[in-house]
């Protein structure tokens, strides 16, 4: 395979809060290939958005990227000057946010805001203006010529998100990061937006990073998946592998808690049992161990690292689901709260 368009290495981002230092992104590494569609999933607070913001150095105060590399075409984005990174934003890598209601400026006309995204990167005014209408057509906004004059509040939620996508695509970026682009929209509109993103990914060949709570969204759109937990990647693999044979118990329980039929069109997955860890005081050992039904003694003390478990799969787990199935009866487990059902307890297995 050709060299990845984006290589993230050991990315670390911290928030200096009054209570102490929160490491929201803790040693994240992954590759993104040209034109591929990568999903990042995880519960609320797992660090998905902060990871995305860190790539473009947009982490808000009191946050700071404290370490790692973000290699875009072999250039470390973290080392660029402020002016250089600004050139990358929106031109090479663009971002779409969760709530289209609030990510468009309410007092500026929609078309003008899309024009501006291009003017910021030196496209002549007349050309930008003409392209805005084309872009709105491309994201299938009806009557695009008249919509450019509308203020954001005159558009429906779905249309606003389409406009945001149009803005994101305006400079023909190589990477489009979509941070939960559909959660604020109603169900039918969600499906349309996802379809649009899929089509654009195929037609334009831009790589897409899709951040979501929803495993169903990943299944519908992505080729590869990263699963995050408490600021770290716990599993990574192809969609087929992750869905058919998840190795990390966290991934496994995410999939189990997914609504069964036609998940793309339904509400976000129920959260799994137990509470997400406090990032100010993350648990020792494996961060998932307090919620893990398959934990062993080692999980309490030793932090697992990402290791290969089969072709195209990395998981950070001392046990892994293959073993949990074989030895701990994972498939028969109904109640997946820690310790319930399987009777696997601390110290029982080695």
């Amino acid at each position: 395979m050709a060299t990845p368009i984006l290589q993230v290495r050991d990315l670390r981002t911290q928030f200096m809060t009054d209570g102490g230092i929160v490491t929201a992104v803790d040693g994240v590494s992954f590759d993104l290939h040209q034109g591929e569609s990568l999903g990042i999933v995880g519960e609320s607070g797992s660090g998905k958005s902060v990871t995305a913001l860190s790539l473009l150095r947009l982490v808000p105060d009191p946050g700071r990227v404290v370490g790692g590399k973000v290699l875009f075409k072999n250039q470390d984005l973290l080392q660029l000057t402020d002016d250089e990174i600004r050139e990358v934003r929106g031109r090479d890598i663009s971002m779409i946010f969760q709530d289209p209601q609030s990510s468009l400026n309410p007092v500026l006309r929609t078309g003008f805001q899309i024009d501006e995204a291009m003017l910021a990167h030196g496209r002549p005014k007349a050309e930008a203006h003409a392209r805005t209408v084309d872009l709105l057509k491309q994201v299938r906004i009806p009557a695009a010529e008249s919509r450019v004059k509308d203020f954001p509040h005159q558009l429906s939620g779905g249309m606003r998100q389409r406009a945001m996508i149009a803005m994101g695509l305006s400079n023909a970026p190589q990477i489009l990061i979509a941070d939960e682009p559909t959660t604020a929209l109603d169900v039918t509109v969600q499906a349309q937006i996802l379809e649009l993103l899929g089509d654009l990914n195929r037609e334009l060949g831009a790589a897409v990073i899709m951040i979501t709570h929803n495993m169903g969204v990943v299944a519908g759109l992505c080729t590869r998946v990263i699963v995050m937990y408490a600021g770290q990647i716990v599993e990574q693999g192809t969609v087929e592998q992750i869905f058919a044979n998840p190795q990390h118990p966290y991934t496994w329980s995410l999939l189990r808690s997914m609504p069964r039929v036609d998940a793309v069109r339904h509400e976000r997955l129920r959260s799994i049992e137990g509470i997400a860890p406090d990032l100010l005081h993350p648990p020792a050992g494996c961060r998932f161990h307090p919620r893990c039904p398959f934990r062993i003694e080692k999980c309490y003390t030793d932090e697992p690292v990402l290791e290969e478990h089969g072709p195209d799969n990395l998981a950070a787990c001392w046990v892994t689901m293959d073993r949990a199935r074989k030895e701990m009866g994972a498939d028969d487990l109904v109640d997946i709260r820690p310790g319930a059902g399987s009777g696997v307890h601390k110290g029982q297995v080695k």
């Binding site: 990358v88 934003r89 929106g90 663009s94 971002m95 609030s102 309410p106 995204a117 910021a120």
Partner: peptide, 16 residues
């Protein structure tokens, strides 16, 4: 506000 973050993400200069 989110639209300011969005503007920064689209590469807008501080003066803008």
């Amino acid at each position: 506000r989110e639209f300011i973050e969005a503007a920064r993400a689209s590469g807008a200069k501080p003066a803008r």
